[in-house]
Computed example of a mutant assay.
Amino acid sequence: MIKLPPLPYAYEALEPTVSATTMRTHHDKHHAKYVDVTNQLAAEKGLEGRSLEEIIAEAESRGERKLFNNAAQSWNHAFFWTCMTPDRRDPSGELLRLAQEAFGGLDELRARFVQVGADHFASGWVWLALDGGRLAVVDTHDGGTLAHQAQTPLLVCDVWEHAYYLDYKQDRKTFLERWFDTVANWQFAETQLAAAQGGGEAWRFERAA
């Protein structure tokens, strides 16, 4: 089985960008439900004991949409918590060089990330990824994930309404702007980039003990 990972910081650590109320609801209710349903369905489908990444890939190959959506959402949310930090610093080094190459600089990357996320229709995710050696901003719908794709995810922001509605109502664009400016975990993104370039292991969802 898989387990709900704890937040890597206190519920209130990301305030005022993300409130403690939102974090408690998002993590303790939404994420926990995805994990519970994933464990239930994985057991029914004979996938108990598999890693979450393996469950996602197998569910997709079998066309098991309910299992795929819940497993992918379990993975996406765990990755999302890691993509935020109360101790944000600007990107540097290779990541900044690639941002310049792909977008013209960090400001242009920010504009693209916010635009893609704000323009995304309905529920989903906006990702910064390494795709064929080049940075790209992509979005996925509903439970869509980069957990098992050729692209390496560096950062993701949740654009389901439950991620921001308590704090921003319908103003997703302001949420994305503040998220990028204040809590995006660029140190983690740099670790993911290094892994994609052969410098260590990329992030994976931890199995239950």
Rank of each mutant, 00 (worst) to 15 (best):
S61E: 15
T145Q: 08
F121H: 13
G105E: 02
V37P: 09
S61Q: 15
D107G: 14
P153R: 10
T145F: 03
V156E: 11
L166Q: 15
G49F: 02
D158R: 10
F80T: 10
A136W: 05
W125I: 03
Q40I: 10
E94T: 14
Q100P: 00
E58A: 13
R112I: 00
A129D: 10
A71I: 01
L96N: 10
Q170L: 11
D142C: 12
D36S: 07
E48S: 15
H120E: 07
K66A: 11
A59L: 09
A78R: 03
V138T: 03
C157A: 14
R62M: 04
E54C: 13
D36G: 04
S51T: 15
E161C: 05
L41D: 11
A102I: 00
P86E: 08
N70Q: 04
E64S: 09
V159C: 15
W125F: 09
N39G: 07
V37R: 15
Q73V: 00
A57P: 09
A71Y: 01
D87S: 13
W75C: 04
E60P: 06
L128R: 07
D90F: 06
R110M: 03
H162E: 15
G133T: 12
L146V: 07
W125T: 06
D87G: 05
S123E: 14
G105M: 02
A78D: 08
L95M: 08
A57V: 08
G117H: 11
N76E: 09
G133R: 13
G46H: 07
A129W: 05
W125S: 06
S61F: 09
A102G: 01
Q40Y: 10
A99I: 05
K66N: 12
L135W: 08
W127L: 07
E44Y: 08
L128F: 05
G49I: 00
E94L: 12
E108Y: 07
R112N: 08
D36Y: 02
K173E: 15
Q115F: 09
R88M: 03
D119F: 01
Y164I: 11
P91V: 00
Q115W: 09
E48K: 15
W81G: 01
F80L: 08
Q170V: 12
G46F: 03
T82P: 00
V126L: 02
W160D: 10
E48Y: 12
Y165N: 12
A118Y: 03
L41T: 12
W125H: 10
P86T: 05
R62E: 04
A163S: 12
G124F: 02
A42R: 08
V35C: 13
T38N: 06
L128W: 07
D142T: 14
N70F: 01
E44Q: 15
Q170P: 13
T82A: 08
R62D: 02
R89G: 08
V137K: 09
G143W: 02
Y164P: 12
L130S: 07
E101V: 03
F113P: 01
T140V: 00
L106E: 08
N76Y: 11
A147I: 02
A150M: 09
Q40H: 14
A129S: 14
D87N: 15
K169G: 03
D90P: 09
